[in-house]
């Protein structure tokens, strides 16, 4: 977890301050922030002395992302990480708005591992579901014309038969 610590410690552990779009401050170790390719580039060119603004990401999302980065910078055993990732995703996917923002933010910050994890979870939500079920889950409005729909149905009819 991102915690605020004293200035002496900050110098000792090479800490960096990140500021979310709603001005929430997070002080994390440099190696944690480095998990984001974008932040890494910013740190490389501007140093870690002054706080780095992450303008497109809100505090609650940034907090969750840093939690992920911190866990993934420890180099723990693969099975431990897989279990942790699953629990992290189970928690995140409960709130679709949050989950959606999490994906956008990790994409924006260029944390490929996390984008990948979220994409797999998203894909899991789409699998084995009929188009109608997916539309309901994500509030998708079907704006296809009758002709378009019929065209798809005749080309790939086999795919839409009930199992």
């Amino acid at each position: 977890m991102a915690t605020i610590i004293t200035k002496e410690q900050q110098e000792k552990e090479k800490m960096v301050t990140l500021v979310s779009s709603d001005s929430e401050k997070f002080v994390v170790e440099q190696k944690v922030a480095e998990k984001s390719h974008v932040i890494k580039m910013v740190m490389n060119c501007c140093g870690i002395e002054s706080p780095i603004p992450v303008r497109r990401v809100k505090g609650d999302i940034l907090k969750s992302i840093l939690e992920y980065c911190e866990k993934h910078s420890k180099g723990e055993a693969q099975e431990v990480m897989e279990k942790w990732d699953k629990e992290y995703m189970d928690k995140a996917e409960k709130d679709l708005v949050f989950f959606h923002d999490l994906m956008l933010a990790s994409h924006f910050l260029h944390i490929q591992e996390l984008v990948d994890l979220i994409a797999v979870t998203f894909a899991g939500m789409l699998k084995m579901k009929s188009p109608e079920e997916i539309r309901q889950k994500f509030n998708i409005n079907n704006d296809l014309t009758k002709e378009q729909e019929e065209h798809i149905m005749t080309t790939f009819g086999w795919a839409f038969q009930p199992i």
């Binding site: 894909a123 789409l126 699998k127 188009p131 704006d143 790939f156 839409f160």
Partner: peptide, 25 residues
């Protein structure tokens, strides 16, 4: 990102999303 999500599915499942809306076609 949407095609990245679909890349995590078998192609037959990815294709099924074409019936969702014009944006997914």
């Amino acid at each position: 990102l949407r095609s990245y999500i679909l890349s995590k599915l078998p192609t037959a499942d990815a294709m099924k999303t074409s019936l969702l809306s014009t944006r997914w076609k």
